[in-house]
């Protein structure tokens, strides 16, 4: 326990770094994937190519990608930016499919009603399609968020500090407790972020929780 006492401050710092290394890619991924997914769903032919390349991106293993990206960007291999870029690519790859599916499965009669009541294309996209796609997008974001928190730890192997550093240090010092601490911290962080996404969903999508009354 004395190790934990002595290292509490450092674990806190690592957790903070880990937090922004996890949140940034998910937010960036969402910002890119939603408009592109919306567009892809309206242009099936080119959109299909786009979605296909997204899914290929997702098959690329994380550690190799973490070493290839700095060579392409010209950044130092130790730069945390590499982790953000790689994880953002994954987030885009996954959320692009989610977003395209979310927009494609909107009830036809509601979209039709939006047209019939005189929404312009933009008004329909922002006021009708985006909020209605919200629940599916949120489910996708939750999946991406959890796996991103877990993937950040791989960055420790190329020297980017985060909670994963507790694994490499614990391994080198043959200290099981440090690894277990890291595991618990990572899982807690994933749960915390998931809770925040759920909360955000309740605030932004209050209608999604209403029960259908007997008609």
């Amino acid at each position: 326990m004395s190790w934990l006492d002595a290292n509490l401050g450092r674990i806190g710092d690592l957790a903070l770094t880990h937090l922004w290394l996890s949140v940034l890619p998910v937010v960036l991924g969402l910002l890119v994937a939603v408009p592109v997914g919306w567009w892809a769903q309206r242009h099936p032919r080119l959109g299909g190519v786009l979605l296909g390349s997204g899914s290929i991106l997702y098959t690329l293993p994380s550690l190799p990608l973490l070493t290839i990206i700095p060579v392409i960007l010209g950044t130092s291999i130790l730069d945390p930016l590499n982790v953000v870029v790689v994880l953002s690519l994954y987030a885009v790859a996954l959320l692009l499919r989610t977003a395209a599916d979310a927009f494609a499965q909107l009830p036809r009669e509601v979209v039709d009603a939006a047209d019939a009541t005189g929404h312009s294309t933009w008004q329909r996209a922002l006021r009708v399609e985006l909020p209605l796609a919200g629940p599916v997008l949120l489910a996708g974001v939750r999946v991406v968020s959890v796996s991103t928190v877990s993937l950040v730890t791989v960055g420790a192997l190329i020297g980017v500090s985060n909670l994963g550093s507790l694994f490499t240090e614990g391994f080198q010092r043959n200290y099981t407790f440090e690894i277990v601490t890291g595991l618990v911290a990572v899982v807690l962080l994933a749960l915390l972020l998931d809770g925040l996404w759920v909360l955000l969903g309740r605030l932004l999508l209050p209608w999604a929780r209403t029960e259908r009354s007997a008609a």
């Binding site: 928190v149 614990g170 391994f171 043959n174 690894i179 990572v186 899982v187």
Partner: peptide
């Protein structure tokens, strides 16, 4: 299957080897 996604692979690997 959902909660296993949260488990970091590197942590699991190092832990198992120490055990």
């Amino acid at each position: 299957t959902g909660s296993l996604r949260a488990l970091p692979t590197l942590g699991l690997l190092t832990l198992v080897v120490l055990w």
